[in-house]
């Protein structure tokens, strides 16, 4: 019966990010945060495997103290317990740091057979934390997986590769990063939400880990990308259609 760690990240909702008018700077002043979209699939897969094979599922997240807000949501999606590794300095971690922090936290106190990460995080989408974490823990890993089966002490997974599918057998303990099409995350109900409030949350601080985690990358700048468009809207109906045909003619795609 596998002991599973599901990893989720609390990220800015990119829809709330604004471009500071007249500049190419981004303003994150009024952004909301949420659980990274694809980590919902990761949490769901943990819950699904538990339903199928038994065992236990815990959640793990690394973030600033404010990321605590993500935990109840995550717990309502399946894990029985959450580990929250936190420090105010954890605000702009790069994947190398995040993985190192997770590795330290896991080695110090979490027993596991399987670790599941999302395909990539909603903000950085670096697709690194999973494989880096596996490397640090010295366990096998499979990435871009859209099917997991557990057979005895092995995970049999289907990995999406450019020219098809590769089916791998990984001895446990192992780490798997999952694609969003592996499952459809459930929508937590009222009872799930209530139950989540009662589940234990273990906080692990930087002091507890007794290590420093230095970055390898320096961010030189972040610029807004923009797309200048005419933004002309028209109604459906013969007028709109006629206008669209004129647009298409002008664009030279019909003659």
């Amino acid at each position: 019966m596998p002991r599973i760690i599901t990893c989720f990240k609390w990220v800015v909702d990119q829809a709330d990010i604004r471009v500071v008018p007249g500049t190419d700077e981004l303003s994150l002043d009024r952004v909301g945060y949420r659980i990274s979209e694809y980590d919902r699939n990761c949490l769901e897969e943990g819950a699904r495997l538990k339903e199928q094979y038994g065992g236990e599922v815990v959640g793990l997240t690394v973030g600033i103290p404010g990321a605590k807000k993500s935990i109840k949501d995550a717990l309502s999606r399946g894990p029985e317990k959450a580990y929250f590794v936190t420090d105010p300095s954890f605000s702009n971690l790069e994947p190398g740091q995040t993985a190192a922090i997770m590795a330290a936290a896991i080695s110090s106190q979490i027993e596991y057979d399987l670790i599941i990460c999302g395909e990539g995080s909603g903000d950085l989408y670096a697709q690194q934390v999973g494989p880096r974490l596996a490397e640090m823990l010295g366990i096998p890993c499979a990435v871009f997986v859209n099917k997991i089966e557990i057979k005895e002490k092995e995970a049999i997974v289907e990995c999406k590769v450019e020219d098809g599918v590769e089916v791998l057998a990984l001895p446990l303990p192992a780490l798997i990063t999952v694609l969003p099409d592996i499952n459809t995350p459930r929508v937590p109900g009222l009872k799930d939400t209530l139950a989540a409030g009662k589940k234990p949350v273990e906080e692990i601080t930087l002091q507890d880990l007794n290590k420093s985690f230095d970055p390898y990358l320096e961010t030189l700048n972040v610029r807004a990308t923009s797309m200048e468009r005419t933004c002309e809207k028209m109604d459906a109906g013969s007028e709109g259609i006629a206008k669209m045909v004129a647009v298409l003619t002008k664009a030279g795609v019909i003659s």
Partner: peptide, 9 residues
């Protein structure tokens, strides 16, 4: 103050 808040429901 101890109220339980359930969002998204």
């Amino acid at each position: 103050e101890g109220a339980i808040l359930a969002c998204g429901i």
